[in-house]
Simulated assay, not measured.
Amino acid sequence: MIKRLLPAKAQRRVGPFIFVDHMGPATFVAGSTEGDVRQHPHIGLATVTYLFSGAMQHSDTLGTRQRIEPGAINLMRAGRGIAHSERIPVDIRQEQVQVEGMQIWLMLPEEQAESEPSFQHYPAALFPVMQVPGCEIKVLLGEYFSQTSVVSFPSRCCYAELKLDPCSNLTLPKSEQQLAIYLAKGSLKQPQLNAGQMLVMTDDLTVLAGDDGAHFMLLGGDAVADPVLLNWNFVARTPERLAQAKADWNSGNFPRLTDDPEWIPAP
Results as ranks from 00 to 15, higher is better:
116 E>V: 01
88 I>Y: 05
100 E>T: 02
94 Q>I: 02
91 D>F: 12
97 V>G: 01
116 E>R: 15
95 E>R: 15
110 E>T: 11
128 P>N: 10
126 L>C: 06
113 A>L: 08
125 A>F: 04
117 P>E: 02
109 P>A: 00
94 Q>P: 02
92 I>G: 03
95 E>A: 04
84 H>C: 03
106 L>S: 11
102 M>E: 03
119 F>P: 10
96 Q>C: 01
105 W>P: 15
86 E>H: 09
86 E>D: 05
114 E>H: 10
93 R>P: 07
110 E>A: 01
103 Q>C: 02
104 I>Y: 02
106 L>H: 13
113 A>V: 14
104 I>E: 02
113 A>W: 03
90 V>T: 08
125 A>K: 15
107 M>I: 14
112 Q>N: 02
111 E>Y: 07
97 V>F: 04
84 H>V: 11
93 R>F: 00
91 D>I: 06
119 F>R: 10
123 P>I: 00
114 E>F: 09
115 S>K: 11
96 Q>M: 08
92 I>M: 07
118 S>G: 08
127 F>P: 13
88 I>A: 05
122 Y>R: 09
103 Q>T: 10
106 L>A: 00
122 Y>S: 08
91 D>R: 13
111 E>T: 12
104 I>N: 03
124 A>E: 12
115 S>T: 14
120 Q>G: 00
89 P>W: 15
99 V>L: 10
114 E>W: 13
91 D>C: 02
93 R>A: 02
97 V>W: 09
115 S>M: 12
127 F>L: 03
